[in-house]
Design a protein around this nucleic acid. Structure first.
Lengths: 162, 162
DNA sequence: TACAATTCTTAGCCAAGGCTAACTTTTTAG
DNA sequence: CTAAAAAGTTAGCCTTGGCTAAGAATTGTA
């Protein structure tokens, strides 16, 4: 499939009031957004696990898989499988029947994820979302914000406070 | 597993500066947030397809699966399988080798999805995110905002404009 | 009309991320 | 110290949503 195959898409006039293709949204751009979204869906589960492991370590000194399971609302078997995957990705260290620890890389991911989480919560609060809803909704939004958007959020929150 | 099994979670003091458990985030609440997030991941793909079918119908009078495939950046086979699923869910009508049409329910879902999409874009613009990034990031955030958050967004945007 | 290109369908594959059930190891209580 | 409870592991299953490859239907055109 070549570029010229769908050159006409570039010329489609922007229809008003729909989510349809327009100037800033060519077919190619849209496809790549969806691809990014699919990618995000894949990585966000990993990030959730890693962030949670970090939380547990910080709170309780160690992350036991039973606690991970409780907080994520999944079974122990599922956690086990996922931990194995995280281990393969070099995000955690784990020995059978022992609790889970973060590698440097894992810790870095957790901190980044956590930072994003907090920025999103702060932004939601700043535009008038109540505390509980902000925490609930940030879980999910945090993985879908580009660095640019997060920067804008941080900026906005900072200005709001002045 | 009973409530009392983890009553101690309610008493955990809120550690500062982490994403850890605190007053507004009991283990149960957190688990249910993650469950909601998993649910959202499942429904958002459906919504993406339905919204896109609506876009194509509005733009071109019909939704051909080759166009859906192009815009989502997936193969025709994938679209085919998904359309079959949407049909089972009574969101679309589709006959072999013919283009796809929305049922009333499908149209309703598309409109709702589109409305959310626009609110999110507007909010992002309002807090200083540039046009292109706003459109890119809204794709993904739109599925993760509760009605409360969307209402707050709409409210904030309206006030901003005055 | 017939053939070529395009589109659509089908079959079969894969990985991810859930689950249950059965089993082993570790921890805890008596 | 031993038995019961809790935690962790393993095996096997399911659904989703991707993919490729091969073939059938439709459409466009010489």
């Amino acid at each position: 499939m070549t570029e010229s195959d769908r050159a006409e898409d570039e010329l489609t006039p922007p229809p008003e009031g729909t989510g349809a293709i327009s100037a800033h949204m060519t077919v190619d751009r849209q496809a790549s957004h969806f691809k990014r979204a699919r990618q995000a869906r894949e990585t966000e589960i990993v990030e959730d696990y890693v962030e949670l492991v970090a939380d547990l370590i910080d709170e309780q000194g160690e992350a036991r898989s039973v606690d991970v399971a409780k907080r994520l609302g999944v079974t122990g078997a599922t956690v086990n499988k996922m931990i194995a995957r995280l281990k393969e990705m070099d995000l955690v260290n784990a020995e059978p029947y022992r609790s889970v620890f973060l590698t440097d890389e894992g810790r870095k991911m957790a901190e980044a994820s956590r930072a994003r989480h907090h920025i999103v919560v702060a932004l939601l609060r700043a535009v008038g979302v109540d505390e509980a809803t902000a925490w609930a909704d940030a879980e999910g939004m945090e993985h879908r914000c580009s660095p640019e958007t997060l920067a804008a959020f941080a900026d906005f929150v900072k200005k709001q406070k002045l």
